[in-house]
Write a protein that binds this DNA or RNA. Structure first.
Lengths: 307, 307
DNA sequence: GGAAGTTATCGGATTTTCCGATAGCAGATG
DNA sequence: CATCTGCTATCGGAAAATCCGATAACTTCC
């Protein structure tokens, strides 16, 4: 337990700004202090969090891993602070959530845990379905809020959306793949490779568009609805995959390791966020949920100013 | 975000030891340092965490509230540390959990969240039933581990148990109750009061025994299986309740406040823990679960030594 | 009244943290 | 090619935090 909350704060800021100087400015602190903090943190963990770069620094895989924990810790701290904030007007009632399957395991679980902790009186129910159907339910008033991929939201008139996480597409490779050593990977490199396709939410559609933009037809070796299956298939060398970073984990179920790489070029990102019906009066429970989610992954700016 | 992880560590130690000196000794640190840290923490939060007492110090209600958050934060920190500990041998497989209803909402949810985070590959299923039936399933090999109240475990030959939390009984009162102002509350004070009885797990049996030890027959005004109902009934003045501290929350569903008080005298405590079949080879998933739970609420001693 | 136990307080030593300046490096620019 | 710009690493000293030891004040128990 040697590292400090302050170090975590600096680390997160650096990870998000992508540069020490930027983080220092955003924290209104000197640059050397940030450098020291990061160095101290790394030596304490015994892990290199960033790769020093000519122009800024890019986060390591382990750094990314630690980033998740760090944000979680700071969220807990924020909860603790707020817990006896202002009388905590305890709300009861119901909250009807909708969620798409990709988001369910990777985004909603944390969010829901925090929400239940903060508002234990609310009775939460959640259903999982595809995005179109969720939109239908939202418009019909049968759902309060949906957490979903909103990059391709259909009805932007009746529905209001708020992004709270954007996740870039990354390339998943088995360890030792020929592309693993390449300095730069471009889309044309991956076109001939056999591709493992996840057929959940809109990932298939997106990946198809992605490659079509380079006038390439993907060489699809497998289709599956299970992220775990994609991991196993990639790990055992059945192919490579192109998936948003938020579902990436460095190992498969059986323990085989996989690797994830950035792809050069401006590939689109997946936007995860909340959707609710525009103009409809939200219940207190829904407002609280939205507020919590907003503050989960957006508050970096404010957090910096608060200092 | 001003307080420090160190302060949290000291705070937890004081809360558990019940005295600054004891905490200082357990942390192998000077007493004044602990006093300073607590005082700093209190002034930062703007809340008094402890009531200074002639003989040690007792935790405030808000202190208790903060304690929960503090342990959660430190658990997250520990997770972050361990996350890239040693290759993280990723296990798959299944884990069959059993849980009694009281424990499900108040103990298991946190534990399960941490477990899924640490071992995302394991497929967890849980069933909720009464203690006797869980014992039956454990012996039959249909459950890997059960999380339950183990104070009155029947079969201690075939089953092995490990406590990881003990929760004292406390008295729940509506705000402004005549006993709320009393300096000391003894069992004889509460005997004539109408009692709200929770008929879940073994709480009814325990409460009965408790009062019977003072040769008193409880004056039961209500029986219910819902903790929420107990809160509402207590808050609206229908009676008082005698329940383990781990289910205490200071407000009812409707927002009415309730209060909890210590009772003088050595009342028994509820022991929550895990149970598994003695001698049977546990699966890796079960061993991991047990290890995580052990380290959730027991590591204070070790944590102190690690310093 | 004294002994033993507790927490609070204070001054000084030690350690951590921060800052500002400087050096070094890579790319952009003239 | 020289120069400028934007970035990180390093270093010494200042500032702040943390810790310690001693002491005071109080309560309980003998």
């Amino acid at each position: 337990m040697a590292f400090t909350l302050r170090q975590l704060q600096y680390f997160i800021s650096v990870a998000e700004e992508g540069t020490v100087s930027g983080a220092a400015q955003s924290l209104s602190i000197s640059q050397s202090a940030v450098t020291d903090a990061i160095k101290e943190l790394e030596s304490d963990l015994g892990v290199t969090l960033f790769e020093r770069h000519r122009r800024g620094l890019t986060i390591t895989h382990k750094g990314h891993q630690f980033y998740r924990h760090a944000t979680r810790i700071l969220a807990s701290v924020s909860d603790a602070r707020r817990s006896f904030g202002e009388a905590e007007a305890p709300v009861g009632g119901n909250l009807q959530l909708g969620v798409t399957s990709l988001v369910a395991g990777y985004v909603l679980s944390d969010l829901l845990a925090r929400y239940r902790r903060a508002y234990p009186g609310v009775n939460v129910t959640a259903i999982e379905d595809n995005g179109d159907y969720l939109e239908h339910l939202l418009i019909g008033g049968e759902l309060d809020v949906a957490v979903m991929v909103i990059s391709n939201l259909r009805d932007r008139v009746a529905l209001q959306a708020e992004i709270f996480e954007t996740s870039p597409y990354r390339l998943w490779l088995p360890l030792g793949h020929r592309l693993g050593g390449a300095d730069i990977i471009s889309v044309s490199d991956i076109v001939p490779e056999p591709l493992i396709m996840l057929t959940v939410d809109e990932t298939e559609e997106n990946t198809g568009k992605l490659l079509a933009a380079f006038s390439a037809r993907p060489n699809v070796a497998f289709r599956t609805r299970s992220v775990e299956a994609v991991r196993s298939l990639v790990a055992t060398g059945a192919g490579i995959a192109l998936l948003p970073d938020l579902v990436y984990r460095p190992w498969s179920l059986e323990g085989d390791r996989i690797e994830s790489r950035d792809i050069s070029g401006a590939l689109p990102v997946v936007q995860v966020g909340m959707v609710w019906r525009r103009g409809s009066r939200l219940t207190q429970a829904a407002r609280d949920f939205i507020g919590l989610a907003q503050q989960q992954h957006a508050p970096r700016g404010r957090a910096a100013q608060e200092r």
